[in-house]
Amino acid sequence: MIEFSSVEYRHPNGVLALRNIDLKIRKGEVLAIVGENGAGKTTLIKHTNGLLKPSKGKVTAFDMDTNDESVANLSRKIGIIFQNPDHQIFSESVENEVKFALKNFGFKEEAISERLEWALNFFDLERYRTTSPMLLSGGEKKRLCIASVLAWDPDVVVMDEPTVGQDFIQKERLIKIIQMLVSKGKTVVIVSHDIEFIWPLQPRVIVMCGGKIIADNKAGKIFQERELLNKARIVKPQLQELSEKIHGESSGAFSNIYDAKQWVISKLKSD
C-alpha cells in the first residue's frame, strides 16, 4: 500500500534525517515505529502523505508517487493524527472542527452530516457539538482530533505519539479505537515510545536509530534483543522482563496479562 524505496531525506539545514529507508506498509497491519527522540520517526511518517518529499529515492502510496501528488489527494487515503491537538484545533465549535476536513475533501452535504454524526457518537463528543473545542480537556481534545481525521474514513491511520499527556482512561480508549480500526481492516501506524501501550497490540515493530531502520520484525521478536534495544534507547516491556526472568534470555513473552495468568495458573495446577 505504501512503499519506501531507498529513501533519503535531508533537512533544508543540511542534516540527514532519513538514510536508506526501505519499507513496505501492508494492508490491515498494525505497525509501531519506535526509537529515541530525534531518531527520524516523525520525519518518516510525514513522507507517507507527501508532507515531506524524499531527497533521494521514492515513496509510493496507493500506486501514486508522492512526488507527483498533492498532500490533499494523498491525505484522503492516509490520515495523520499529530501529537499536539492544540496545533490543529481552530473552529468555533466541535461540530465544525470535524466538518473541516470533510469540506476540504469535497464531501457532499448528506455525506458530511452522516460522517459527522458517526464521529460525534463514536468518540462520545455528542454533548459538546456546539461547544468551543478550546474549552475541552486534554483528553477530549485528543479524541476530537482523532474524530476529525477518522471522519473521512482514510484507509491508513497514522498516529504520532498518541499517548503523550494522556491518562490511563484515555489510553484505554485509544486501545479500543485502534482495535476497532483493525477490525475494519484499516492499516494503523503508531509512532510511540510508550512500550507498555503498544505491547498488548502485538504489532509489527520498526526500530529507528539515527535516521535508519535498524530492525523490522514482530513485537515478540524485537523486544527479545537487548543489544538492539539498548542501541535504540528503548526499554523492554514488563511482561518481556518477567518471562526472561522466569525462562531465561531470548524467550518469547506473554502477549498480555491474561496470557500470563493462564500460564501461571496452569503451571500451578500441574505442580
Partner: peptide, 15 residues
C-alpha cells in the same frame, strides 16, 4: 510551531 500547524492542517486537506 507554525510549520507543525501547517503540516497538521495540510494533512486534513487544507490547500
Amino acid at each position: 510551531d507554525a510549520l507543525q500547524i501547517m503540516d497538521a492542517q495540510k494533512s486534513r486537506g487544507l490547500e
